[in-house]
Design a protein around this nucleic acid. Structure first.
Lengths: 346, 346
DNA sequence: TTGTACGCGTTATCAT
DNA sequence: ATGATAACGCGTACAA
């Protein structure tokens, strides 16, 4: 009964390898744990036989006793948005190299992070969780995910924000957007822009509200009028229509600061292909993120760059550190931004 | 000792819930299994207390006994390519609705699907595996993944192909590319194209070789010259450079059939912004996939569409069926393609 | 409907 | 360096 079962393919277990190699089951376990002490020659023999039998330790069984699932949960609203897909790609690569697998969860696009999902997710016991959606209360998330390390990506004014959301107890990544925004506004001003519009992203997005706040602040500091704020949602289509509205119903603008690159593309296409305006001749456009598409010749977008590699490195650093020393004090990683000048301003 | 441990947060277990609700641990288990028989009122009380205690059944422990991990592995070379990120998004959404979580694994871009990854992956015991990389031998994959259901996406001439790769033992999805390609070639011919170039994708990609083969075949059937084949790799930058080569070093073409939409964008930008040729005036361009970017006004690409929703539905169907009836005969799902006419031909 | 006993595959503990 | 034993948290057969 326990010797043979009728499943088509019977998965090799440590016991099978042990029997085949004439060692104890424990020795097999140790062979797969580099730290365990085992006579090298014995380990080699075991690993060889394991390979022949196509044996791999079962992570589920292992996690049951080690309390480490080697799973990292990622919560995303849209896998197919260029920025996020890039980030998922880079994170998955980096984590895979460290022995962690990516567990992907999708939340509804309206950012309603329902408890259902978190409960569901918790069943998998991820060692860590990366939340891209910035509108989750730390308390909610950490309450649900015992073993997990919530990592929050917040923007500027980190300390003030942390205090407000009582998030200072958690590891977090701070993106200093102001630097890049200042450079962008300076460039726009230098080329004579007077009436700047801000093409917003999703209302609930923290990145968006912070971008709007900082742009307003920087414009004021430079003696310029406050931005005309046009609502959007980070998508091409919405940006396209919003730009048409701005110029047909509204009073237009001589510069558009978009909340991300994709929205900038929508604005550019509306200006050029429907409003017959020239970019940057009639209207200057600046984006945010610097996704690969931004250097495509049809757009050649001037944009505020967030360095993806740096960002991913910082995140992985936070995760690994928290995993190694669970009791350590919360750590803050900081990331700066800078303007990448291409052809849509000037 | 087993009553209290010193971990900061102690995960609620079925035992704890049972104690709190004054029921047996088994009752808790049953409360979470809809099929199990349990007095409704009792179940409700248990579920309520479970919610209060923030309890979720541990999937790892559960999978150990049920032999179902509720994990679906996805193997991708590039998360950030538009088509794949779309597909990952849709699949994750669909699978999540069915109670499965997506486990993401990245393979090297050169398609070298190394056994290391598969071994690593097998440790997680995914219930099913979707391989986007089309160059994995079924035998290799199935040998490594006992519990998994390899799903292969192959193109046209399914039976011939199946026989050649001895893949007929597995579930598979067949994409009939010929229909869309025929429509595209007819359109090109109708608008006077005579010299058609095929801008290739990754050499190892099965989709690519099949596309080239079918285009050649269709051109012949319509009495047109064979295509000028230009090597590429599905990326914008390579397509851009390849197009420059084609017109500066080579003899040019009056129509370019790109292996995917992104490559088509690269070709269009090279033609318009560097070679000062008009699209579609001087050169007509057709893509493949119909990603969201294809309707962006700057490109407005005529392209062969593969319906993503249909494709994902078919894949999920295959997976769920195989999970429910492991012994069932291999099933073939078929998908057709059609031309979406926009502004780059004619 | 409910409870008992056991096993899933692995590692930790404590021996030797 | 190695081996025996006891967990880890859960589902299932079986009995009640």
């Amino acid at each position: 009964m326990s010797e043979r079962n009728d499943r088509k393919v019977t998965r090799a277990t440590a016991d099978l390898v042990a029997r085949e190699a004439n060692v104890s089951r424990i020795a097999v376990s140790r062979a797969f744990n580099p730290n365990a002490s085992l006579k090298p020659e014995k380990r080699d023999r075991i690993l060889k036989i394991a390979r022949e039998l196509n044996y791999t330790p079962d992570m589920a069984a292992r996690s049951l006793v080690t309390r480490r699932s080697h799973l990292v949960g990622m919560i995303v609203p849209d896998v197919c948005s260029p920025w996020e897909s890039q980030e998922i790609d880079a994170l998955t690569t980096a984590l895979q190299a460290e022995g962690f697998a990516t567990l992907l969860f999708k939340v509804k696009a309206d950012f309603s992070m329902d408890q259902t999902l978190l409960t569901y997710m918790r069943g998998f016991n991820p060692d860590s969780v990366i939340a891209f959606t910035e509108n989750v209360e730390p308390a909610v998330l950490s309450g649900f995910l015992d073993r997990a390390v919530p990592v929050y990506i917040i923007y500027d004014d980190a300390e003030e924000f942390a205090a407000k959301r009582s998030t200072s107890l958690y590891d977090r990544l701070v993106v200093r957007q102001k630097e890049g925004i200042e450079q962008a506004v300076a460039l726009l001003q230098g080329y004579g822009a007077r009436r700047v519009a801000y093409l917003g992203g999703k209302r609930q997005s923290l990145a968006n509200t912070e971008r709007e706040r900082i742009i307003t602040q920087v414009l004021a500091e430079r003696g310029m009028a406050p931005p005309v704020v046009v609502p959007g949602d980070y998508t091409y289509d919405t940006a396209y229509r919003a730009t048409l509205d701005l110029f047909r119903v509204g009073d237009g603008a001589d510069a558009i600061f978009a909340s991300n690159d994709v929205a900038a593309f929508g604005a550019i296409d509306a200006l050029r292909h429907e409003l017959s305006l020239s970019v940057p001749g009639d209207v200057k456009v600046v984006g945010f993120d610097d996704i690969p598409q931004s250097h495509w010749k049809s757009y050649n977008l001037t944009t505020v760059r967030i360095d993806l590699a740096d960002r991913v490195r910082a995140l992985v650093r936070l995760i690994l550190r928290r995993l190694k020393t669970p009791g350590a004090d919360p750590l803050v990683e900081t990331l700066s931004t800078r303007l990448v000048v291409r052809g849509t301003v000037g």
